[in-house]
Protein backbone atom coordinates (compact mmCIF):
# COMPACT_ATOMS: atom_id res chain seq x y z
CA UNK A 1 0.00 0.00 0.00
CA UNK A 2 2.81 2.35 0.96
CA UNK A 3 4.58 1.65 -2.32
CA UNK A 4 1.37 2.23 -4.26
CA UNK A 5 0.93 5.62 -2.61
CA UNK A 6 4.52 6.51 -3.39
CA UNK A 7 3.92 5.62 -7.03
CA UNK A 8 0.79 7.75 -7.15
CA UNK A 9 2.62 10.77 -5.73
CA UNK A 10 5.53 10.43 -8.18
CA UNK A 11 3.14 10.00 -11.09
CA UNK A 12 1.18 13.05 -9.98
CA UNK A 13 4.29 15.19 -9.90
CA UNK A 14 5.31 14.04 -13.37
CA UNK A 15 1.87 14.61 -14.88
CA UNK A 16 1.40 18.01 -13.22
CA UNK A 17 4.72 19.18 -14.62
CA UNK A 18 3.65 18.08 -18.07
CA UNK A 19 0.26 19.80 -17.69
CA UNK A 20 1.86 23.12 -16.74
CA UNK A 21 4.14 22.83 -19.75
CA UNK A 22 1.21 22.22 -22.08
CA UNK A 23 -0.73 25.15 -20.59
CA UNK A 24 2.28 27.40 -21.08
CA UNK A 25 2.64 26.21 -24.69
CA UNK A 26 -1.01 26.93 -25.50
CA UNK A 27 -0.72 30.41 -23.91
CA UNK A 28 2.48 31.40 -25.69
CA UNK A 29 1.09 30.52 -29.13
CA UNK A 30 -1.69 33.07 -28.90
CA UNK A 31 -0.04 36.44 -29.65
CA UNK A 32 3.05 37.74 -31.40
CA UNK A 33 5.40 40.43 -30.18
CA UNK A 34 6.77 42.14 -33.29
CA UNK A 35 7.03 45.88 -33.81
CA UNK A 36 4.33 48.07 -35.31
CA UNK A 37 4.71 49.77 -38.69
CA UNK A 38 4.03 53.42 -39.28
CA UNK A 39 3.14 53.94 -42.97
CA UNK A 40 0.39 52.70 -45.23
CA UNK A 41 1.23 51.76 -48.79
CA UNK A 42 -0.78 50.03 -51.49
CA UNK A 43 2.01 47.96 -53.05
CA UNK A 44 5.12 46.32 -51.69
CA UNK A 45 7.81 43.91 -52.66
CA UNK A 46 7.53 40.61 -50.84
CA UNK A 47 10.78 39.12 -49.63
CA UNK A 48 12.05 37.03 -46.77
CA UNK A 49 12.53 40.17 -44.67
CA UNK A 50 8.83 41.00 -44.77
CA UNK A 51 7.35 41.15 -41.29
CA UNK A 52 4.02 39.47 -40.80
CA UNK A 53 1.32 40.76 -38.46
CA UNK A 54 -1.71 38.50 -38.20
CA UNK A 55 -4.61 40.10 -36.38
CA UNK A 56 -7.61 38.22 -35.02
CA UNK A 57 -11.23 38.45 -36.04
CA UNK A 58 -14.50 36.81 -35.06
CA UNK A 59 -15.22 34.38 -37.89
CA UNK A 60 -16.51 30.92 -38.76
CA UNK A 61 -14.00 28.07 -38.59
CA UNK A 62 -15.06 25.43 -41.12
CA UNK A 63 -14.64 21.73 -40.34
CA UNK A 64 -15.14 20.48 -43.86
CA UNK A 65 -14.99 21.42 -47.51
CA UNK A 66 -18.71 20.79 -47.89
CA UNK A 67 -19.50 23.60 -45.45
CA UNK A 68 -17.37 26.05 -47.44
CA UNK A 69 -18.95 24.93 -50.71
CA UNK A 70 -22.41 25.44 -49.23
CA UNK A 71 -21.56 29.03 -48.29
CA UNK A 72 -20.04 29.90 -51.66
CA UNK A 73 -22.10 31.45 -54.44
CA UNK A 74 -19.29 30.65 -56.87
CA UNK A 75 -16.34 28.26 -56.98
CA UNK A 76 -13.66 29.03 -59.55
CA UNK A 77 -10.08 28.40 -60.57
CA UNK A 78 -8.44 31.80 -61.00
CA UNK A 79 -5.11 33.49 -61.46
CA UNK A 80 -4.09 36.82 -59.98
CA UNK A 81 -3.43 39.45 -62.67
CA UNK A 82 -0.98 41.48 -60.59
CA UNK A 83 -3.48 44.30 -60.14
CA UNK A 84 -4.18 45.09 -56.52
CA UNK A 85 -5.26 48.21 -54.69
CA UNK A 86 -5.45 49.20 -51.06
CA UNK A 87 -9.09 49.50 -50.05
CA UNK A 88 -9.85 52.01 -47.30
CA UNK A 89 -13.10 52.23 -45.37
CA UNK A 90 -13.80 55.88 -44.62
CA UNK A 91 -16.23 57.85 -42.52
CA UNK A 92 -18.35 60.57 -44.07
CA UNK A 93 -15.69 63.06 -42.96
CA UNK A 94 -12.99 61.11 -44.75
CA UNK A 95 -11.32 59.35 -41.82
CA UNK A 96 -10.03 55.84 -42.58
CA UNK A 97 -11.21 53.28 -40.06
CA UNK A 98 -10.28 49.98 -41.71
CA UNK A 99 -8.29 48.62 -44.67
CA UNK A 100 -8.01 45.55 -46.84
CA UNK A 101 -7.08 44.85 -50.47
CA UNK A 102 -9.04 44.49 -53.68
CA UNK A 103 -7.40 42.14 -56.17
CA UNK A 104 -8.17 41.39 -59.80
CA UNK A 105 -8.24 37.79 -61.03
CA UNK A 106 -8.84 36.04 -64.34
CA UNK A 107 -11.26 33.13 -64.28
CA UNK A 108 -9.79 29.92 -65.74
CA UNK A 109 -12.49 27.45 -64.74
CA UNK A 110 -15.90 27.66 -63.10
CA UNK A 111 -17.27 24.87 -60.91
CA UNK A 112 -20.25 26.59 -59.36
CA UNK A 113 -22.15 29.83 -59.86
CA UNK A 114 -22.57 32.41 -62.56
CA UNK A 115 -19.05 33.73 -63.14
CA UNK A 116 -18.00 33.15 -66.73
CA UNK A 117 -14.77 31.44 -67.71
CA UNK A 118 -12.47 33.98 -69.32
CA UNK A 119 -13.93 36.88 -67.36
CA UNK A 120 -12.10 39.13 -64.96
CA UNK A 121 -13.44 39.84 -61.50
CA UNK A 122 -12.31 41.51 -58.28
CA UNK A 123 -12.16 40.03 -54.80
CA UNK A 124 -11.57 41.46 -51.36
CA UNK A 125 -8.53 40.05 -49.59
CA UNK A 126 -8.10 40.49 -45.81
CA UNK A 127 -4.50 41.67 -45.98
CA UNK A 128 -2.48 44.72 -46.93
CA UNK A 129 0.97 46.24 -46.54
CA UNK A 130 1.04 48.77 -43.72
CA UNK A 131 4.50 49.72 -44.96
CA UNK A 132 6.72 48.30 -47.64
CA UNK A 133 8.09 45.46 -45.53
CA UNK A 134 5.22 44.83 -43.12
CA UNK A 135 2.23 42.75 -44.10
CA UNK A 136 -0.93 43.01 -41.97
CA UNK A 137 -3.62 40.39 -42.32
CA UNK A 138 -6.63 38.83 -40.64
CA UNK A 139 -6.26 35.33 -39.26
CA UNK A 140 -3.20 34.34 -41.27
CA UNK A 141 -4.46 35.18 -44.73
CA UNK A 142 -1.74 35.57 -47.37
CA UNK A 143 -2.31 37.54 -50.57
CA UNK A 144 -2.53 35.84 -53.95
CA UNK A 145 0.53 36.06 -56.18
CA UNK A 146 0.99 35.88 -59.92
CA UNK A 147 2.69 32.49 -59.83
CA UNK A 148 -0.24 30.72 -58.27
CA UNK A 149 -3.51 29.34 -59.52
CA UNK A 150 -6.24 29.43 -56.95
CA UNK A 151 -9.43 27.59 -56.21
CA UNK A 152 -11.57 30.37 -54.79
CA UNK A 153 -14.80 30.00 -52.89
CA UNK A 154 -16.60 33.30 -53.36
CA UNK A 155 -19.65 35.11 -52.09
CA UNK A 156 -21.24 37.82 -54.15
CA UNK A 157 -22.18 41.15 -52.61
CA UNK A 158 -25.36 43.08 -53.28
CA UNK A 159 -23.54 46.26 -52.22
CA UNK A 160 -21.09 46.12 -55.12
CA UNK A 161 -19.25 44.06 -57.73
CA UNK A 162 -16.33 42.89 -55.59
CA UNK A 163 -16.56 39.31 -54.35
CA UNK A 164 -15.78 38.08 -50.82
CA UNK A 165 -13.64 35.01 -50.17
CA UNK A 166 -15.54 32.58 -47.95
CA UNK A 167 -13.95 32.16 -44.54
CA UNK A 168 -10.95 34.28 -45.50
CA UNK A 169 -7.95 31.87 -45.54
CA UNK A 170 -10.42 28.99 -45.76
CA UNK A 171 -11.69 30.02 -49.17
CA UNK A 172 -8.45 30.27 -51.17
CA UNK A 173 -6.16 27.38 -52.20
CA UNK A 174 -3.15 27.48 -54.52
CA UNK A 175 -3.25 24.33 -56.64
CA UNK A 176 0.35 24.94 -57.80
CA UNK A 177 1.56 24.52 -54.21
CA UNK A 178 0.75 20.94 -53.27
CA UNK A 179 3.01 20.77 -50.21
CA UNK A 180 1.45 21.08 -46.81
CA UNK A 181 1.95 24.24 -44.79
CA UNK A 182 4.65 23.81 -42.17
CA UNK A 183 3.47 24.90 -38.74
CA UNK A 184 7.05 25.37 -37.57
CA UNK A 185 7.71 28.26 -39.92
CA UNK A 186 4.50 29.49 -41.50
CA UNK A 187 3.84 32.38 -39.13
CA UNK A 188 7.11 34.05 -40.09
CA UNK A 189 7.56 32.89 -43.68
CA UNK A 190 5.92 35.30 -46.12
CA UNK A 191 6.20 32.65 -48.83
CA UNK A 192 3.87 30.33 -46.92
CA UNK A 193 0.40 29.93 -48.33
CA UNK A 194 -1.16 30.30 -44.88
CA UNK A 195 0.31 32.35 -42.07
CA UNK A 196 -2.01 31.54 -39.20
CA UNK A 197 -2.44 29.19 -36.29
CA UNK A 198 -4.92 26.64 -37.65
CA UNK A 199 -2.38 24.79 -39.77
CA UNK A 200 -3.84 21.30 -39.33
CA UNK A 201 -7.26 22.58 -40.31
CA UNK A 202 -5.91 24.42 -43.35
CA UNK A 203 -3.91 21.44 -44.55
CA UNK A 204 -6.89 19.12 -44.14
CA UNK A 205 -9.17 21.43 -46.10
CA UNK A 206 -6.57 21.88 -48.79
CA UNK A 207 -6.22 18.16 -49.26
CA UNK A 208 -9.96 17.92 -49.75
CA UNK A 209 -9.86 20.76 -52.26
CA UNK A 210 -6.98 19.28 -54.25
CA UNK A 211 -8.70 15.91 -54.36
CA UNK A 212 -11.93 17.38 -55.69
CA UNK A 213 -10.96 20.39 -57.82
CA UNK A 214 -8.32 20.09 -60.53
Amino acid sequence: MKKLLQSIIISGVLLSTTACGLEQDSFSNDTTTKKVASQIVADATVNQKTKIASMHADFIIYDSLSEIEKNADSIVLAEFTGQRQLNEYKTAEGYTFHQNSISTVNILKAFKGEIDVGSTIQTFEPGFFQKEDEYVNLEGYNLMNEAGKYILFLKKNEAGPVFTIVGMYQGKYDVTAPNQVDAQVNKTDIESEYLGENVDQFNKLKQEVLAKYK
Binding site: K34, A37, A57, Q130, V136
Partner: peptide
Protein backbone atom coordinates in the same frame (compact mmCIF):
# COMPACT_ATOMS: atom_id res chain seq x y z
CA UNK B 1 -15.81 43.37 -47.44
CA UNK B 2 -14.14 40.33 -45.92
CA UNK B 3 -15.82 37.35 -44.30
CA UNK B 4 -15.61 38.06 -40.58
CA UNK B 5 -18.20 38.91 -37.96
CA UNK B 6 -16.29 41.56 -36.07
CA UNK B 7 -12.87 43.01 -35.46
CA UNK B 8 -11.24 45.53 -33.16
CA UNK B 9 -8.48 47.71 -34.61
CA UNK B 10 -6.31 49.53 -32.02
CA UNK B 11 -4.10 52.50 -32.87
CA UNK B 12 -1.16 54.16 -31.18
CA UNK B 13 -0.90 57.90 -30.70
CA UNK B 14 0.80 58.37 -34.09
CA UNK B 15 -2.12 56.73 -35.88
CA UNK B 16 -0.39 53.42 -36.47
CA UNK B 17 -2.34 50.17 -36.25
CA UNK B 18 -1.01 48.30 -33.22
CA UNK B 19 -1.06 44.93 -34.91
CA UNK B 20 0.77 43.07 -32.16
Amino acid sequence: GDDYGGIMNPYTSNGTLDVF
